[in-house]
Design a protein around this nucleic acid. Sequence first.
DNA 1: ATATGTGCAAACTCTTTGCATGGAG
DNA 2: CTCCATGCAAAGAGTTTGCACATAT
Lengths: 123, 123
Amino acid sequence: MKKRDTRQRRAIRQVFLDAARPLTPEEVLERGQGEVPSLGLATVYRNVKILTEEGWLTEVALPQDGMRYELASRPHHHHFVCRTCDQAFDIHQCPPSVEEIAPAGFRVDDHEVILYGSCPACA
Amino acid sequence: MKKRDTRQRRAIRQVFLDAARPLTPEEVLERGQGEVPSLGLATVYRNVKILTEEGWLTEVALPQDGMRYELASRPHHHHFVCRTCDQAFDIHQCPPSVEEIAPAGFRVDDHEVILYGSCPACA
DNA sequence: ATATGTGCAAACTCTTTGCATGGAG
DNA sequence: CTCCATGCAAAGAGTTTGCACATAT
């Protein structure tokens, strides 16, 4: 199926290019409406799904509220979740030897580290 | 508010005492109905919330599907999620200095490490 | 006896889907 | 001119809440 280059899809892509952290569909909607006011939530969901299938976005599975998405091209990093404002922040370091805690017999091919606490604005 | 010791609450507590891994509300319902067939899902949600507030249970935030719960008294550990059978396993080690990767200005009060891969049975 | 706990169903929230219209190619 | 994409509204899935009745204390 051929993909069309619509105003909405362009706006949604731009939102992710401008984002410094993983975004929820709701956040994508708000930001995208700055560019295309008529943008609907269903369109955000549909496009985020398509962009993820295309490998342009990746799902960030943070427990707090729902799935978040970010550019697939970003280098390896982890996340900090603020329990006060519920925002997710990137952490650009990775603890050494994280994957070595797996017991023998388990083959590890990826890992996620999530820190919880208060961000600078909420602390 | 004083807490009563009902059949339902006792059954739910027993489910967690018998569990070897974090459980979803749905799993608690199924297991609890073995003891109290009339048990309702709303009661599970209410009690799981109360037991968490009391500090008897802790929320386990595995991205897969929804929140899971386990005994708070279990020693600190992390989780391995098998991408083949979707089962979660406990890892009884914790990588050193995980929380030190947080940037300045962030106050960390908890962390979670999730490894993904294949468990011994699926490898 | 009294007030909390329960079960049911309705309300809510988040996400997906059906359908008629809009707009890219 | 064709069809895919969009917006709306309704439908689903998961969780919470209101209410009348049950029951622990």
